[in-house]
């Protein structure tokens, strides 16, 4: 790579890394000089200090653990059936004809709007929260897997047909790996959406979790705690996203 391109790449990398710090710095100065109201926008350094008591005294990690556990369970419950049904719809015209209108009718419903119904059905507790996540993840997994199967290049099937590859082998060695990019997109979107849904659900229907903590902080006017929760959600989101990207690179290495 020529030196000028290297320098340019480095320049953009520095801009990329420093932009959050720059905004935090502006925020700090603005809050400390009174340009913005420090009651609603406390300086980032004070928010950072608030992490320690929250984790040590208020056992915030239990809330994080609760939310993470619900996301994991919800993703598992929603992703697997979604991927299976998406695959069936991608492969069978009959299944597509049967399920497409059902998906089209139910997909646009905001998933959090189903929570009251789930609370009635399953009662207060973990399961209703998990189910909200599962329903949200299910649709994303289904739609992306279905799209992934639909986008398998025709030539892959024609090669298999010409070389007389068995149907079982076509499924195992062509359809499954070829639809993996779509399946993974569904998983990544599902995990991100699951994080949004669980926080929303915990605000109304849980007694632990990050969403619950945000709601409690709002009720007790602990603004710094709200910011700590938001920063935590953001960090979890980044870790999950980077982790899934790495996993995808490893599994779908040919992409």
């Amino acid at each position: 790579m020529p030196t000028s391109t290297k320098m340019e790449n480095l320049r953009y990398r520095i801009i990329y890394i420093s932009s959050p710090f720059f905004v935090l710095f502006l925020w700090e100065i603005s809050a400390r000089t009174g340009i913005i109201d420090a009651r609603f926008f406390p300086p980032p350094t004070q928010i950072l200090k608030q992490f320690i008591p929250l984790f040590v005294e208020d056992k915030f990690y239990i809330d994080i653990g609760s939310s993470m556990w619900r996301i994991a369970a919800g993703v598992a419950l929603g992703f697997i059936p979604g991927a299976i049904l998406g695959m069936i719809m991608g492969l069978s015209r009959t299944a597509r004809a049967f399920f497409s209108p059902l998906v089209a009718l139910t997909y646009p419903i905001p998933k959090i709007a189903i929570l009251p119904l789930l609370l009635i059905i399953f009662g207060l507790g973990n399961f209703a929260n998990i189910m909200v996540v599962a329903i949200g993840v299910f649709f994303l997994s289904l739609i992306n897997t279905y799209a992934g199967v639909g986008q398998i290049p025709k030539i892959h099937f024609e090669v298999a047909r010409v070389f007389r590859i068995s149907r079982m082998e076509v499924f195992k060695s062509i359809i499954l790996p070829a639809s993996l990019p779509g399946v993974f997109t569904g998983l990544k979107l599902g995990v991100g959406y699951g994080l949004i849904l669980i926080v929303a659900a915990e605000m109304v229907a849980a007694n632990a979790g990050i969403g619950f903590r945000i709601w409690m902080s709002w009720e007790t006017y602990l603004i710094k705690d709200i910011y700590v929760c938001l920063a935590t959600i953001s960090t979890i989101g980044i870790i999950l996203s980077v982790g899934l990207d790495k996993l995808e690179e490893k599994i779908i290495h040919w992409k």
Partner: peptide, 22 residues
């Protein structure tokens, strides 16, 4: 075929082995 039609998730050897098996 006009397009090579190799399976991108199989390495060269496995692309050949795949048709040999059938």
């Amino acid at each position: 075929f006009q397009q090579h039609g190799l399976y991108p998730w199989m390495n060269v050897e496995n692309n050949l082995r795949f048709v040999l098996k059938a």
